[in-house]
């Protein structure tokens, strides 16, 4: 298969404008592809730049004073770095759906749920008005909301967290987009609800062959449904790895993340943690950004600019120069 990937992100660098003269790198750099129908898990701690990376895909970086400084960002053959207003309005909501962070948001509080879904449907200017209601109920059925006729006439504060997120997913898939960007869609939800939402995303992929970028800091959760995992640390994508290989990660940070999970089925006794605080934006170490927390660190890791992308397979790369020694 030599099919073009749906999304190509290549050495993408995002800066945030602090003052007129001062800029701060916030993503530096990100590299990965998303194939059609693929679910990518984008994993990282808070402040690792995952949200900003998502915003660059939906064109709302400027709202946070950020912009793409360099690199390549291509969606379905369209260069998103150079995309202007008119192009964005063709892409947003139609070809890229967005599911916001569950903890912060949800549907618009001053609009009925039905009105919002209908709004999402009517982004397609040619959609027949007479069928909007029918389609809205159909969408609510797809996201497995019971009694959709009732929910249509409710406001967001009358819904539970999981329901809100289902509604957001319904809005996101209204135009059957090729890509859904879900920014921590299950943070703060009940574990059972988390699993349901994940299952829902899987079924949507199965039905519409939608690519999904699933942002999370919960590696074990995401690992269950993703094809590939992209791990971000301090603004860099440090490793891309097929999720079935996660136990053989070739970057110490990925290992540390995976080892620090709490396994309820087979308790390990002692809980592994990453010592110290994650680096804050603007004070990243020179050289490998994980060097200060890494057990395998050597002097050569601290040489500035040492985070080469080392391909290990078709969907696997690491940026650790000592990856061969991790298993010794």
């Amino acid at each position: 298969m030599s099919e073009q990937p749906l999304v190509i992100i290549d050495e993408l660098k995002i800066d945030v404008r602090l003052t007129r003269a001062k800029r701060l790198p916030i993503v530096d750099t990100a590299t990965f592809d998303v194939k059609r129908g693929e679910i990518i898990g984008l994993i990282g701690e808070s402040g690792s730049g995952k949200t900003m990376l998502c915003r660059s895909l939906v064109g709302t970086l400027h709202r946070r004073g950020a912009y793409i400084a360099s690199g390549k960002l291509v969606f379905d053959g369209i260069d998103l770095v150079a995309a202007k207003g008119a192009q964005w309005s063709e892409i947003r909501g139609k070809q890229i759906g967005y599911v916001p962070q569950s903890a912060l948001a949800g549907p618009n509080p001053v609009m009925l749920i039905g009105a919002q879904i209908e709004e999402a449907i009517l982004q397609d200017k040619n959609f027949p008005k007479s069928k909007v209601k029918e389609r809205a109920i159909e969408l609510l059925n797809i996201v497995q909301i019971r009694r959709p006729e009732v929910v249509m006439h409710q406001y967001q504060h009358e819904l539970s967290g999981g329901m809100k997120q289902r509604v957001m997913i319904a809005c996101a898939i209204a135009q059957q987009p090729q890509l859904i960007v879900a920014d921590e869609p299950t943070t703060g939800l009940d574990v059972t609800v988390q699993a349901e939402i994940m299952r829902l995303l899987l079924s949507i992929r199965a039905e519409f062959n939608t690519s999904i970028i699933l942002v999370s800091h919960d590696l074990p959760l995401v690992n269950q449904i993703c094809d590939d995992i992209v791990v971000m640390h301090a603004g860099t994508t440090v490793e891309k790895i097929p999720s079935k290989d996660i136990t053989h990660a070739k970057h110490p940070y990925t290992r540390a993340l995976y080892d620090s999970r709490i396994d309820l089925v087979e308790p390990k006794g002692k809980l592994t943690t990453i010592n110290g605080q994650p680096p804050t934006v603007g004070s990243w170490p020179a050289g490998c950004r994980f060097s200060e927390w890494c057990n395998f660190v050597r002097d050569e890791c601290r040489v500035p600019q040492t985070m080469p992308i080392i391909p290990l397979g078709p969907d696997h790369y690491t940026t650790c120069i000592r990856y061969t020694e991790l298993d010794k």
């Binding site: 967005y98 916001p100 948001a105 949800g106 618009n108």
Partner: peptide, 21 residues
Amino acid sequence: EEFVETGIIRGVGRRRFFWFY
């Protein structure tokens, strides 16, 4: 607020956006 961002990304038209969002 996050729902405003969602509205922008949904591609809501200018007038509707001004009133509802």
